[in-house]
C-alpha cells in the first residue's frame, strides 16, 4: 500500500500554495507539520481529490487517483479543517447519511456507527442535533464520519483542534490502533499529537516539503541547539530578545528556567537538552512564535 505524491503543484492567481511536492506515504501515521499558510490544507485537499493540482499527480498503488475514481474514494476517509453539518441532522442521522454515501450496507452502518459513537464518546448525544453540540463534540462527529468506512487512507486536517486534553489522548489512542496497515496523514498545530503517534513526519514550508523522516531523525536537525538555563525572573524580557524561548518554567523564589534555541549557549550556566518536535517546529517556523531565527 502506497500513496505517491508526484511533483504536484497548485498555483493560485498570485500564489503557489503547493510547489512541486513529491512524497511517498506508506502505512503508518504521518504527521504533516507546517505553519499557517504553508500549504498543508491545499496538499491534503489534493490528496482528497477535491482540488486538482495545477501539475503533477497523486497515485495510489501506482494508479492515478482520478483514474481510480470511486475505487479510491471507497478506501478514503477525510476530515477537513472546517466543514459544515446539516443543522437539522442528529449525530446518528448524519452518520447514517455519510455511511450511505460511503456505500455501507444497513448492517455495516448500524454496527460501525455503534462502535464509533462509543469510541469517540458520543453515544449519549447520538440523538442530539449536531447544531447543539459543543465544538469538541462536533469535531468528534467529524472524526467518526471519516472512520466510518474503515479507510485505508485517512487524511485528517487539524483533527484535535477544539478537543480537550482528555479527548486528545483518547483520539491518539484510537488513531494508533486504527493506523495499523493503513496510511494516516495528520496535520496539526499541536506538535505533541504528532510526537506521540506519528511514525513519520513531513515538514512543509512555503508550499514545499523541506524535510521528511521519523520524529527521532527530524529532531536531530536541532540537536545541539536546545538549551536550558535558570535565570532571575526580572531578566526574562532581556533574554527573550536575545534567544528564541521555547518555554518558561517558574521555579519559585522569583527564578525561572528557560528552554531556548540557539546555535551556541548564550545564557551563562546553560545545559544542553534533548531536542523535541516542539523545538524543531520553532526552529523551522520562528515566525509562528513571532520571532526571527537568532
Amino acid at each position: 500500500m502506497e500513496l505517491e505524491i508526484c511533483d504536484i503543484t497548485r498555483q493560485y492567481k498570485d500564489k503557489c500554495a503547493v510547489d512541486n511536492v513529491s512524497l511517498t506515504l506508506t502505512p503508518g501515521v504521518w504527521g504533516l507539520l507546517g505553519a499557517n499558510g504553508a500549504g498543508k490544507t491545499t496538499l491534503m485537499r489534493m490528496i482528497a481529490g477535491i482540488q486538482k493540482p495545477t501539475s503533477g499527480c497523486i497515485k495510489y498503488d501506482g494508479i492515478r487517483i482520478e483514474a481510480l475514481k470511486e475505487g479510491y474514494r471507497d478506501i478514503f476517509g477525510y476530515l477537513p479543517q472546517e466543514f459544515g453539518f446539516y443543522p437539522g441532522f442528529t449525530v446518528k442521522d448524519y452518520l447514517e447519511y455519510i455511511a450511505a454515501l460511503k456505500g455501507l450496507t444497513r448492517k455495516e452502518t448500524k454496527q460501525r456507527i455503534g462502535t464509533l459513537l462509543e469510541r469517540v464518546s458520543l453515544k449519549e448525544v447520538k440523538n442530539k442535533k449536531i447544531s447543539r453540540l459543543s465544538g469538541g463534540m462536533k469535531r468528534r462527529v467529524g472524526i467518526a464520519q471519516a472512520l466510518l468506512n474503515e479507510p485505508e487512507v485517512l487524511v485528517l486536517d487539524e483533527p484535535t483542534s477544539g478537543l480537550d486534553p482528555g479527548e486528545r489522548v483518547k483520539f491518539r489512542n484510537l488513531l494508533s490502533e486504527f493506523a495499523h496497515d493503513r496510511i494516516v496523514l495528520i496535520s496539526t498545530h499541536i506538535v505533541s499529537d504528532i510526537e506521540y503517534i506519528a511514525t513519520c513526519n513531513a515538514v512543509m514550508k512555503d508550499g514545499k516539503i523541506i524535510a521528511t523522516g521519523k520524529t527521532e531523525e527530524l529532531v536531530q536537525m536541532v540537536a545541539g541547539r536546545v538549551w536550558s538555563a535558570g535565570i532571575d525572573g526580572r531578566e526574562l524580557g532581556a533574554c527573550e530578545n536575545q534567544v528564541m524561548v521555547v518555554n518558561v518554567y517558574n521555579e519559585g523564589n522569583g527564578n525561572v528556567r528557560l528552554r531556548y534555541l540557539s546555535d551556541a549557549p548564550v545564557i551563562p550556566g546553560s545545559d544542553k537538552e534533548e531536542p523535541r518536535m516542539e523545538d524543531l517546529y520553532l526552529w523551522l517556523f520562528p515566525e509562528s512564535a513571532g520571532k526571527e531565527r537568532m
Binding site: 482528497a48 477535491i50 476530515l79 459544515g84 453539518f85
Partner: peptide, 17 residues
C-alpha cells in the same frame, strides 16, 4: 453545501460525486 463546507466531506465519499 458549498457555503457550509459540507461538500468537502461529501465529495470524498464513494457516492459523493
Amino acid at each position: 453545501e458549498y457555503q457550509t463546507g459540507a461538500d468537502s466531506i461529501l465529495r470524498c465519499t464513494k457516492y459523493g460525486r
